Amino acid sequence: MSKGLVLVTGLTGFVATSTALAFFEAGYSVRGTVRSADKADVWILVFPQYKDRFEFAIVEDMTKPNAFDEAVNGVDIIAHIASPTHWNPKDNEQDILLPAINGTKNIVNATKLEPKIKRVVFTSSFAAVVDARNPPPAGKVYTPNDWNPITYEEGKASAEPRWAYQASKALAEKTFWDFQKTEKPSWSGSVIAPIATYGPPQQPVKDLKGINMSNQYFLAMANSTFKQGVPAIGFPYCVDVRDVALAHVKAVELDVAKGQRYLLVGSPYKPEQLVDILVRNFPMLKDKLPEVDISTVDITPPFGIDTSKTTSELGIQFIPLEKSVVDTVSKLLELAVQFGAI
């Protein structure tokens, strides 16, 4: 018997797929939002064991008013994950800011139509916590109380897409909290804020171009793109998608999580550590990677992040860096063979 029906927005994405699977494994039924029925059909073909507890709702454009009104009908829980993540927008406002903010407005407004809803978890980002435009002060330790102060206008006008993305995440999350303050809904809300998210991709893809952006980093390492040196990417920390998915389940099951914000941040890392892990575990990739001497690398992160609230209240024990990297690359190599890329 199902524990309840969970609406997972953006079902076919990297984080949403893993989150939907975590809810299935925890005993829930899942309704995923997709842009077409074909996408839902392809998705459930990969996970036939959950077919009896799966349904979908078509949301072609989450920015349109009332976009989620039908999708919320009969659901008990919402995991709002859908949000644009890309670095090549034609227009910061239209491609990044408005989809994130208006999509959030539409999902929370839709909850007024379904009194059954008990819990809503919003997937934010560490980008809503830290202002990456400015180096943190020495000794800074980020906590769930920190906020990125970037404004809508700064995100809209920025020539750097990353700042537009940061603004979209911070402002969308504030929209989520503001709704709870002003509307005082009957449901309780929680926020999950993950940092750069790696882990084995489980979402259906047609080719390697369909792999999510963060895992493209590992593909580039495996195909010699970084032979002359692996660049840093994002913040010097990462988290495994399976921890992020589990946190969504815990956030809607535990009373302590009501009204709370959780940072999902696993291991600090340097690019040289990733190379070292790959060479030791995938010797066939050695010639595609730069030579590194890990003993000479200072792996001390430039700032700290306090995740004690996540571990103590949600009970998340973060997957170690090496396991996350090995599992991720194993899956990517499997897909590369499947698509004839190697």
Rank of each mutant, 00 (worst) to 15 (best):
R53M: 08
G229H: 08
V129K: 08
L264N: 03
V292Q: 12
K209R: 13
L254I: 01
N145V: 02
N134K: 14
N66V: 14
W187Y: 05
S267Y: 04
V6A: 04
V121K: 00
K286I: 07
K3P: 03
T123E: 04
P135W: 12
N73D: 09
I192H: 03
R31V: 11
L333Y: 12
A37W: 06
V108S: 02
N148A: 08
P144Q: 04
E313M: 00
F226V: 12
I233A: 14
K288D: 14
Y217A: 15
Q94Y: 15
K51R: 11
S18I: 13
N66K: 14
P302F: 10
L278M: 00
V141F: 02
P137F: 13
V275R: 00
D69L: 10
Y50E: 06
Q228H: 12
V239N: 03
P194E: 07
P185M: 01
T85A: 15
T225P: 10
W147D: 05
K140N: 08
H80I: 07
T197E: 13
K116G: 03
R242F: 07
S224N: 13
M221E: 08
D52P: 03
A232W: 11
D146V: 05
V129L: 10
G4P: 06
T311P: 00
Y152V: 02
T328P: 13
A232D: 11
F68W: 05
F54L: 06
P65C: 13
I195N: 10
K209T: 10
V279F: 01
F176L: 10
G259N: 02
F176Q: 05
E160N: 12
D240L: 07
T85S: 15
G315L: 00
L98C: 14
N73Q: 11
D95H: 15
Q338C: 12
E153Y: 01
V279K: 00
F179L: 07
G210E: 08
S18C: 13
K206W: 09
F303T: 03
D69G: 06
P161S: 14
T111C: 03
K206Q: 13
A79E: 06
S188Q: 04
A100L: 11
F14G: 07
A245Q: 10
L98E: 13
V121A: 02
G139V: 05
W163T: 09
M1K: 08
V297S: 13
K258W: 01
N281I: 00
P268R: 02
S312N: 01
V275T: 01
P144C: 01
N281F: 00
T19E: 15
K331S: 12
L219K: 12
